[in-house]
């Protein structure tokens, strides 16, 4: 990071590389009307995570409990009974409620947060492995890419 590329950098250091790389020419002209304060990618992601966890953990309690579109049609047209028992009914979070937790609000909220966290970890991990490492990036990013590559070496999956 510190001995970052002498090659190109007219603008550079550290925190700006992201901005410079992505929107580049869009933002460079000083005093251009589009020069508004820029929200960092990190902030977007963190706010998004907090909103999502709030939805999964708190708001989900207030969701409609009516059957969804498919279940409704299945019931009305007489094929709902063909659904079998679910093989995962033994899961501690089956049906979006946490086994052993009496309080309905807490039971649902906990299941929502656990599931949401697992989705983020699995999807985020998958995307980090799959992603393209940009060869032309600065030293700091290359280090990051190398770390990611190391993670990618172990074909992580535990669905045995």
């Amino acid at each position: 990071m510190t001995k970052a590329s002498p090659a190109t950098s007219a603008t550079d250091p550290g925190s700006q590389t992201d901005a410079a790389r992505t929107t580049g020419a869009t933002e460079t002209p000083k005093g251009s009307p589009s020069a508004r304060p820029r929200v960092s990618t990190r902030r977007v992601v963190v706010v998004g995570i907090l909103v999502s966890l709030f939805l999964a953990g708190v708001v989900s309690f207030y969701a409609s409990t009516h059957p969804d579109g498919l279940a409704f049609v299945a019931g009305e047209k007489g094929f709902l009974h063909s659904a079998g028992a679910h093989a995962s009914d033994g899961s501690p979070f089956a049906g979006y409620s946490t086994r052993g937790v009496e309080n309905a609000r807490l039971s649902r909220g906990l299941a929502g947060v656990v599931g949401a966290t697992l989705v983020f970890v699995l999807a985020g991990g998958l995307f980090l492995v799959v992603r393209r490492r940009d060869q032309r990036d600065t030293a700091g990013d290359t280090a990051g890419g190398a770390a990611g590559g190391a993670a990618g070496d172990s074909p992580s999956d535990g669905d045995g």
Binding site: R42, V44, V45, F120, A123, F127
Partner: peptide, 8 residues
């Protein structure tokens, strides 16, 4: 990371 957020 944004894609992970979208899944979440």
């Amino acid at each position: 990371p944004l894609a992970g957020l979208v899944a979440l």
